[in-house]
Simulated scan of single mutants.
Amino acid sequence: MDFSNQTVVVTGGTGALGIAVVNTLLDAGARCVVPYINDAEAKALAQHERLQLVRCDLSDEAQVAALYSGITDLSASIHIAGGFAFAPIAESDKEVLMRMVNMNLVSTYLCCREAVRAFGERQGRIVNVASRQALEPRAGKYMTAYTASKAAVAALTQALAAEVAPRILVSAVAPSIIDTPANRTAMPDADYTQWPKPAEIASGIVFLASGANQLASGAIVPIYGAA
């Protein structure tokens, strides 16, 4: 896939999956704009002449608008940023729910809106990240707030795809547990050989964001590996 002379926003680009996506895009010739909050996490991305890091709180409407306002040649917007909470509902207060809503749904919604505005009358691609629990809510026991917020991302993706078709293609991927160092630490007894790898998921995301994708829109693509 060729992303030469194309600008792509990648939220969550400093995380394990985000780094894999950014590196894949840079290798394909893209210019990447990556919002961040944490300085230490931003340093995880190797410096590159086609990489721009922008400090931005993705739950802040004005900051997200500013992030996109200076981009005149946006070709795709990929929304990986989010959060997770393993919290039984009896032990969860409103703060847990709103944190998941802000980190997963609000950030994705605001970035989708600004991406649509930035595309103008041009074609574009939007790729969101849902989760397996969004497609299989019964698998979301003990993480109801997280599951509800990711299910909302899936619904947003499908509604928006219908709204902006056919000029803008909007899809999402729904990974199961991703093979990252953090997940291995959190689940030391799990068989992580069955988990999808960040690079594997990245290849699917980048395809959906590319011009090679001429038809896929409104899809929530499960990427479970053998998990």
Results as ranks from 00 to 15, higher is better:
M103K: 15
V101R: 07
N104M: 10
A134Q: 09
R125G: 08
M143N: 08
R99A: 02
G140P: 08
N104Q: 08
V116Q: 02
A115W: 10
N128C: 13
M103G: 08
A151I: 04
E114Y: 09
N102C: 00
Q123V: 01
L135M: 13
C112E: 09
L110M: 04
G140R: 08
C111T: 13
V153Q: 09
E114Q: 14
N104L: 04
M100F: 01
M100K: 10
T147M: 10
V116W: 05
R125I: 00
L105G: 01
V116N: 07
R113D: 00
G120C: 06
P137D: 07
M143D: 04
A118K: 01
K141L: 15
V101A: 13
Y142I: 11
Y109W: 14
Q133H: 11
S149D: 05
C112M: 09
A134F: 03
K141W: 06
A118D: 05
N102G: 08
A115N: 11
A139E: 10
M100A: 02
T147I: 11
V116H: 01
A118H: 04
L110H: 07
N102S: 13
G124T: 03
L110W: 11
L110Y: 10
R122W: 13
L110F: 00
A115F: 03
N128Q: 14
M100E: 10
Y142F: 11
C112I: 00
R138L: 14
R99M: 00
L110E: 02
Y109D: 06
L110K: 08
R138V: 14
M103N: 11
M98W: 12
Y146V: 07
A130R: 08
T144D: 07
N102F: 02
A139V: 11
M103V: 10
M143Y: 04
V127R: 08
V101W: 14
R122V: 00
T147E: 06
K150Q: 04
L97P: 04
P137C: 05
V116Y: 00
L135N: 05
A148W: 07
R125P: 01
L135E: 02
G120A: 07
A139N: 12
K141M: 13
N102I: 01
A145I: 08
A151G: 12
M143R: 15
L110I: 10
Y109I: 09
I126Q: 03
Q123N: 13
M143P: 05
C111E: 03
T108G: 07
V106Q: 13
V106L: 15
S107F: 12
M103S: 13
Y109E: 06
M98F: 09
T144A: 14
N104S: 12
E136C: 06
A152Q: 05
E136G: 06
R99E: 04
V127I: 05
